[in-house]
Amino acid sequence: MSSNVSYTVDERGASNSLDYRVYFKDATGQPISPWHDIPLFSDQSKKIYNMVVEIPRWSNAKMEIATAEPLNPIKQDVKKGALRYVRNPFPHKGYIWNYGAFPQTWEDPTHVDPSTHAKGDNDPIDVLEIGQRVANRGEVLQVKILGTVALIDEGETDWKIITINVDDPLAEQLNDIDDVEKFMPGFLRATIEWFKIYKIPDGKPANEFAFNGEAKNREFAEKVVEETANFWKALVGKSPNESKLDLKNTKLSNDYSVKVEDSKSIVEAKAVTSSLDKVPIADQSAIDKWYYIKLN
């Protein structure tokens, strides 16, 4: 059902450390940027998209594509010098979907969205994959879009595109946002609840949403993704680079393309990960803990 292109990952540095990175390689072993070099579509005629998995379901480490680093590896988000982990707002454990991003998209921070009245968040668009299988970090899934919700995060539009892996047992039944409630009752409610409360254990207020938290349908979501894809095209097509983002790539043949040997040097400059390399989490008990939240 899916036109699956093979990608592999190359982990560098010790996990649970500031040095940990996940680089991507194509089928020939050439390093690539998961943001710029993996196409948005796996099969455009069937509207099947490529999703880069940053965070497997049930995990807590807040991983993200490093948009400001060469070849944009996945790294753990850092705040005030500390690695970030999401808490477990009861009854949820970590992220409740496979969480990631669509390649070749960008939420333009200078563009005010007419439907949310807020600017973009300067990242590739976020994707939730709601299927049954727990994916692997760095995996590239073929998904179809079902709908979207929009957070307003610190005054910025933060779209969350809801998708399903095309190989999931429910994929044929799920074709639009209403099908999610029909075949997975309670899932959309849990999704909105999670996004609303997940920052509260860290002392932050409840998140706000555009559209009063209503999930928009597939057609609406596909238009949002198309718009962010056009923003990305404009970003990588503009020279010189006025953003603080790293636009190096190996496939686009533009001003930011690098040679194979240079892409390999970028990866090889990072320490190789040993199977024994794993730094203990400083406060594992806080990661495992359930936080009971009462909204006013």
Rank of each mutant, 00 (worst) to 15 (best):
R133P: 00
E208H: 11
W194P: 01
V149E: 03
N72R: 03
N249Q: 09
Q44E: 15
V5D: 12
M63V: 09
E69Y: 13
T116M: 01
N136R: 11
Y7S: 07
F187W: 05
T250C: 05
E11S: 12
K259V: 08
P205K: 10
G100S: 07
R57N: 11
K79V: 12
V180Y: 02
L18R: 15
V149H: 04
I96Y: 00
T157P: 00
L170D: 10
G213L: 01
M1V: 15
K46M: 07
D179Q: 06
V180K: 02
K289D: 06
K80P: 02
A190Y: 05
A82H: 13
W290S: 13
I65N: 03
K199D: 05
D176S: 10
A229N: 15
G213N: 03
M184I: 13
T157D: 02
K144T: 06
K79Y: 05
E139H: 06
N175S: 12
D262Q: 15
T110Y: 10
D288I: 08
A118N: 09
I48F: 06
F209V: 08
L18W: 08
P124M: 03
P103S: 02
E242P: 02
E226Y: 11
K289L: 07
L295M: 13
D121K: 05
D255S: 13
S59L: 08
D176R: 04
G138P: 08
I48K: 05
L252R: 15
N175P: 03
A234T: 14
A286I: 04
A68Y: 10
I162W: 02
E193Q: 13
A61S: 12
K264T: 09
Y23L: 06
G237T: 09
I192V: 15
N72E: 05
R12K: 15
V149F: 07
W58V: 10
K80L: 08
L252V: 12
E54H: 06
K80S: 14
I281V: 15
R137Y: 02
V78I: 15
I200R: 04
S2Y: 06
T163Y: 00
K264H: 14
I38V: 15
T250M: 05
D37L: 09
R133Y: 10
K233Q: 12
D153G: 04
E139F: 05
K259T: 14
I161S: 06
S45Y: 07
L141K: 15
A101D: 00
V236G: 02
A101W: 01
V143W: 04
E214P: 00
P280N: 07
K259W: 05
S115N: 13
H117S: 11
V272R: 14
D26Q: 10
E227V: 11
K216L: 11
K80H: 12
S42F: 00
K233F: 00
D179E: 02
L276W: 11
R218I: 00
Y23K: 06
D77E: 12
P124V: 04
H92F: 15
Y198I: 03
P34W: 01
T163A: 01
L188I: 14
D37E: 12
E226S: 14
P34N: 06
V225S: 04
Y291E: 11
F24A: 03
F41W: 15
E69F: 12
E172L: 12
